[in-house]
Design a protein around this nucleic acid. Sequence first.
RNA 1: GGGGGCGUAGCUCAGUCGGUAGAGCAUCGGCCUUUUAAGCCGCUGGUCGCAGGUUCGAGUCCUGCCGCCCUCACCA
Length: 492
Amino acid sequence: MTYEEELRQERITKVEKLREMGVDPHGGRFDDVESTGSIRERAKSLNIDTGEIREGERARVAGRIVLQRVMGNLIFLTIRDQSGDLQFGLSKKKLKEQWPALKLLDLGDIIGADGDLGKTKTDELTLWADNVTILSKTIQPPPSKWHGLTDVELRYRHRYVDLFSNPDVRETFIQRSTIIQAVRDYLIGCDYIEVETPALQPIYGGAAAKPFTTHHNALDINLFLRISPELYLKRLLVGGMERVFEVSRNFRNEGISTRHNPEFTMVELYEAYADYNVMMERVEGMTALAIERLDGNLKRPFGDREIDYTIPWARHKYADLLREHAGVDMADVDGIRRKADELGIKHEKMDDAVVTNEVFEATVEDKLIQPTFVYDYPAAICPLTRRHPENPDIALRFEAFVNGMELGNAYTELNDPIVQEENLRSSLAGEKKDETMAVMDEDFILALEYGMPPAGGLGVGLDRLVMLLTNSQSIRDVILFPLQRPRQATEG
RNA sequence: GGGGGCGUAGCUCAGUCGGUAGAGCAUCGGCCUUUUAAGCCGCUGGUCGCAGGUUCGAGUCCUGCCGCCCUCACCA
């Protein structure tokens, strides 16, 4: 038996001992629990004196034992719930009958207690228990009681341990919920409705990415996990749903990095009779509400930088940035190709627009630190976007960048079915076949033929928004269970 | 796929020039009714990621492999 198994066996023995005492080691319903946060708040107005036990000031709390100080017949426990930590005082005098069971408590166990509030002589707010309920006797030892779990691999593989032993991690995911709820509330406040469209799609489209493929047995057909909900949401515009959004889990069968996870969450929205300028306001608006719900601070640290989200964000034309940072004119194809040579980009077999965008990505993107809308993209790489009325080589598209990272992407949507069909039929040299946005979807074209109102559309990467607003350097720190290569069963 | 780094007790980490694998915490046993990472005494705990190689001798040097992190490439 390994030492690890021994430690586990010792705890299993304690579980059996509890059963012999007639104590259920796994508890049950435990009503009317007050959070430790609420208790701390309540205690402020009670003015409990140091060393006082306020008889009759009742409290009922449940949580996990994260620290334990046993002094023979007096035990102090630090109990952690979602809102924070609170000290329990367990005295043999008050808990005579339960004492043998309470001596079996270990770090990591989940318990509940009723008692009077007080303060110890070191002025620590304490629940002096007169009844303790064991809610879950644990058989795995928790990690280091003050370092928590630091091994990054174990943190991701055993996120549940990471969450209860590292309060900062839990706080980040609570903030994630706050941010996404703010995005929803903002859009609902703009008269949007939330919808759900297929994640299993017979044709994938709406983005340029490799899909995951799967198979439906009963229909005997191959399906793709969506890379984007775009083509379905636009069908809803045709159907007369004028403002729709979806919080969409998208799947892209591509590399993993600090900014990419194979499954990620976007909010994608479409607004009839709007355009991409309105979408810029939507990005600003949802971000501002999220910040307001967090701490209201528009100037936020990210790594060693400070990002200022004050509205309005900077707006720059794609062509202007290309001229500024690459020193070439967007219409100067030869100049762009010379620059591509300089940058070591192999562009011989690429379409002009693809080369242009390669140069843009290499020279401009990492310069866009403060929130910036880059607008008016080369039309050829935007098959789903309406053309500029004065220049058919320009598409009414913007991308939002923060800290050199693409946060969002928006169009004034193309609603001309004839042009849309042409765009989907033509593929660009230099684009990989399975990674182009130009995948023909006959039913989508048919929908457009029935008439889609002019509209603005927008997608915002919510994982990346959460990264930025919570100062998280890796997308894995804002995704609860990021993809990891599975380990053999030998791993604990 | 290229480059760099990491992998030692349940957890957090040391381990010098190649010379008997260590500490703290946790666990286990003992003392303890006001602790705050409680304290004190005693014990237990190891496939040094895996497999080879060099060597009288490898946690340490070499090769291959596995996993993770960073980075470049890839990637709306």
